[in-house]
Computed example of a mutant assay.
Amino acid sequence: MRVIKFLKSAFVGLSLAVGISQFAAAQVGAGTYTGTYSGADRGSISITIDQYGAVSCTLSSAAGNGTYTGKGGVVSQSPFIFTCDQHNFPNYLSVTGNGTAGETLSGQYLVRATTSTSSLQGNFSVSFSGSGNGGSNTLSPQAISGLWYDPAFSGTGFNFLAANNGFFATYYGRDAGGSPLWLISIEVPVGSLKTNTEYTTVLGTTINGTFSSPSYQVAEWGQLTVKFDSCTSAKATLSGKDGTQNLNLQRLGGIAGVTGC
């Protein structure tokens, strides 16, 4: 019993520490940055970073090659590094930058011209031109991905993954009879994740196979509905064959190197 209480207290303490550090870091670098890019193409560039670390970028060619837009996130707060991309041909865009948050950022771009198949690349430099959160409530996929749990249900929890093809959730816990229960998303919402918006993923569980001879046969168990308050807290409802739980989730651990929201 003492071990269980100690682990529960440790989890709560770690979660609170993570939440406090994420909240403090979330304000760093938020705002709008404007400047120019040059090289194989040239023009103006605008980069917006919101309070959750989501990034949007726009390159407008002065040489008649069109406009490129993309989305990404803050990869690291110290050093400050961000990415922004769009991989839908022919509007390919890749932007990687770093610098001093709230001052000047610079880096490299790679685009594929809309009028040819040639790749255009070079450098850019932008300066901070406006404070605020960028007018967006989009959450950084890197900040959302990781381990989440409700302290009231210590010993169970989720692994969230905001992937290119949707929002996936894996649940580790117990069923109504006390046996281990492992659920994974079999139908997922796609697109960017925003605060104060409900997302539902259908959960299933494998019903056959052994350790040495796994078999991919999945039975639908129920669903998980999640509404993120921020990149460190969320409200969720887990409902299915074993009942319903209303959860106040906290992010317990995230991706190594991602220190901002």
Rank of each mutant, 00 (worst) to 15 (best):
Q223L: 07
S125A: 11
P180W: 00
K194R: 14
G254L: 09
A219E: 10
K235C: 01
G29Y: 02
H87Q: 13
V226S: 05
Q86A: 13
L120F: 10
T104D: 02
N65M: 15
I4G: 01
A54T: 01
G64R: 00
V218C: 07
P90K: 04
I186K: 09
L16W: 02
S44C: 00
C57E: 01
G157N: 06
T170F: 14
Y172K: 11
L249V: 03
F160G: 06
G19V: 01
G191T: 08
A113Q: 06
L203Q: 08
L161S: 14
L161G: 10
R174N: 12
P90V: 05
A62Y: 09
R251L: 10
P79C: 13
G253L: 15
L120N: 06
T244E: 15
G254I: 10
K71I: 09
N65P: 01
K235S: 13
Y149M: 14
G155S: 03
D242N: 15
F158A: 11
Q217T: 15
V55Y: 03
G260P: 00
S9D: 13
K194M: 12
A54G: 05
F153A: 10
N208D: 15
T96W: 11
T117H: 13
G66I: 14
G107W: 07
G257M: 07
T69P: 02
L193C: 07
G97R: 01
T195D: 04
N164D: 12
I255A: 08
G253F: 09
L203N: 07
A30C: 05
A24I: 14
G222M: 03
G157M: 07
E220P: 03
L16E: 14
V126P: 04
A24V: 14
G72N: 08
P141V: 07
L161V: 14
S116W: 05
A236D: 05
T244L: 12
Y199F: 12
